[in-house]
Design a protein around this nucleic acid. Structure first.
Lengths: 211, 211
DNA sequence: TGTACATCAGTGAACGCGCGTTCACTGATGTAC
DNA sequence: TGTACATCAGTGAACGCGCGTTCACTGATGTAC
């Protein structure tokens, strides 16, 4: 997903894909895309709007038309991330109830692997405009999807055990995903697929509740 | 633990604690301490050596004598953090074997709450000189303490189940701690002590193995 | 006990750099009539 | 179908700022004799 490629495909009037028009076409997407590349490779600390403008091939002041500043950009990424996560979780909880919880966890881990930059930014509140409405909305949707997925453990129960189970499942998936992305499990995993290992691990812990 | 306080207590020749001598006495500690304050409050992105020098009351070039650069400083913090974590885990696994695992997890969570800045930096490899010898050593010690604590689940077993249980316990504690520090559990916890909640949660999951 | 010297920690001026921000501008697009 | 105008996205020069780095220096401490 290189910036220039996504930009040229997304450009509305693509009579000639090569000729650079004055208007970029989808600079917002191009800047987001470049930012995700940088974050995944070097972390959010390495971000600068000028650098992203350079990567997108526009003048350095252009990105400010779409994202007020660095924080605005990161907030947009986090909001997009929560949206993607909510989609992934909703998909997983559509499965049979018994396996809903397990698959929600696996989806969570898969999401983190497929969108490492989003994942990293979503849970770094110090980088974000936490009062941003779009962010709050997206996070609420994801939180809702998460709760629904977890409620699949024992749907009748709304008591403290269900609350605990929810936090346990989230902590487990979040911790596993975080350690995985930080390469902290490299020595402990064999050749196996990390998602399979996570599935095995979940089954071991939740076997009494989920089967 | 304010920088000036820890500095004056640590100063070797404290004939007069008020008179500023040309030499700081323990600038290394003062800079580390100021850095931890900044990280806890605003995140690692807000760090600059010049700012820390200002906070420690020395000229801006002084910190370079102790930490080559920002990365060097963060690496030192991470190494110190792994040392502290190893201590905490070793203390916990000194308890009776049956409760060793549970208490190791609780210690892990407590460590994260008591040293949020260390914790954050330790698991942000993008900020660190990962090839640093001191860091590698400290991390290995902590990893060792972790493995020992987890082996308490069923000490005889070295098979795949034990490996899985280890990753599960670590993921759980790490995820819970991370979500807690990021204020993601604020809505889900009641008035209870977060560590008690974590203990309850662990007991729920591991009851068959640990009791 | 006293003197000379090496070492080390911290100083402060200077430098060059990349950054965000501002601003008057220009090219392109869409809409009203 | 054609013309006028408003709007919007992107330009490029300019600015001031905080940063890291360098360097010759100075004050303090410890050690050799």
């Amino acid at each position: 997903m290189s910036p220039s490629k996504s930009a040229s495909t997304a450009r509305p009037n693509s009579a000639s894909a090569d000729r650079r028009s004055y208007h970029h076409g989808d600079l917002r997407r191009a800047v987001l895309s470049a930012a995700l590349d940088v974050i995944a490779a070097e972390g959010p600390g390495a971000l600068s709007l000028r650098d992203l403008a350079r990567r997108a091939g526009v003048s350095h002041a252009a990105p400010a038309h779409h994202f007020k500043d660095r924080t605005g950009l990161l907030t947009a990424i986090a909001a997009e991330g929560f949206g993607l996560l909510a989609d992934a979780l909703r998909e997983a909880s559509g499965l049979r109830e018994a396996s809903g919880l397990r698959e929600a966890g696996v989806s969570y881990v898969r999401f983190a692997r497929e969108h490492p930059a989003h994942f990293q930014v979503m849970f770094s509140p110090q980088l974000l405009r936490t009062e941003d409405l779009e962010l709050i909305t997206a996070r609420a949707l994801a939180s809702d999807a998460l709760t629904r997925a977890v409620a699949g453990v024992d749907p009748g129960d709304r008591g403290p055990d269900s609350r605990l189970a929810g936090m346990a499942a989230w902590s487990l998936a979040h911790g596993y995903a975080t350690l995985l992305l930080g390469h902290n499990l490299d020595g402990r995993l064999g050749e196996e697929d990390p998602e399979d290992t996570f599935r095995a691990l979940t089954e071991m812990l939740f076997h009494s509740a989920a089967d």
